[in-house]
Write a protein that binds this DNA or RNA. Structure first.
Lengths: 161, 161
DNA sequence: CAAATTATGTGCAAAATACACACGTTTTCA
DNA sequence: TGAAAACGTGTGTATTTTGCACATAATTTG
């Protein structure tokens, strides 16, 4: 059992690393290369939106708005653009005809697949010198980190149930 | 030694986790709470800029622009706003009088400290049930991940030197 | 079943953004 | 060395993006 203080330091450093990682993903080089690789011309906002729809879709406009902290009217217009480009598809939810779910089309999937492949090519060399153990541990722990964060925030403030 | 394919799967899942974490940090609840907690009224853009200047400063306008993938004129105006609010300070770089470095002031530091404290309060319960080993391993591996990414991208394409 | 709530979308005004351009500083190289 | 090119920053201005007010359709509530 390490000290409470040591754990606090770990939390602080964890956040620093996360900020660094986010900052890195924002670097233009990354997106530009990925986009060029995929052969699509999308501004960053639409690019991220497409990835989000692929990752979380079928998803509603309102849910995207919450996730990205933007007004739902803004998202509504961006979603319309992606639909015009044929990269995503809208359909009324069968359970609730108010919501118009968004999901990637075959064309949209081709784009995100190309992005995935490009990202794979760019990230593989980073882990070239990592041991299997470290790589798999990072995979396990980061997944758990994300899961725990999300489940905590989904809970009401009194988390006794 | 696990298979090449297993490692590829790990890379893919790693990216998914990272996207989830970024998505979480974008959730409005987080920033709003943090900002309210710190007793400051800043829109998200300025809030992130301040954190960035604290983390990477002293830093030039151009460097921030690259990091955030925004036009340098946009950043120039945002930086001016933060300076007006007294949260950051500008000074000509002694080495290159063209650049006007930005760095947090004492007042700005108070804000980011408050943000850090608030974040600590919010993130501590997430790791309450984590073992020391897992927490420290996550800290170590995420830091290495960020460091390796940055050092790779800093290198020229022929990385033999 | 009427009223309140929810999801989505449009008009419009305000804000953010990027391009063109300018100015001072540094680097390049003939 | 010195003139030209490149660089970092900042301002004016046109364009784009954003969010609020409001509208419509669908669902839930009581």
């Amino acid at each position: 059992m390490v000290s409470k203080h040591r754990r606090q330091v770990a939390l602080r450093r964890l956040h620093e690393s996360l900020v660094d990682l986010i900052s890195f993903t924002n670097l233009p080089r990354g997106d530009e290369e990925l986009i060029a690789e995929a052969g699509v011309v999308l501004d960053q906002a639409l690019f991220r939106l497409l990835v989000g729809v692929e990752r979380f879709g079928p998803i509603s406009v309102g849910e995207i708005a919450e996730r990205t902290d933007r007004d739902h009217t803004t998202v509504s217009r961006q979603v319309a653009k992606l639909a015009e480009l044929g990269l995503i598809e809208r359909r009324s939810s069968p359970l609730d005809k108010r919501v118009k779910e968004a999901m990637v089309t075959a064309a949209g999937r081709r784009v995100t697949d190309a992005l995935d492949a490009a990202r794979m090519r760019l990230s593989t060399p980073v882990f070239e010198h990592w041991s299997d153990r470290d790589l798999l541990e990072l995979e396990r722990l980061m997944r758990r980190f994300a899961d725990d964060l999300l489940s905590m925030s989904a809970m009401p403030k009194e988390t006794d149930t």
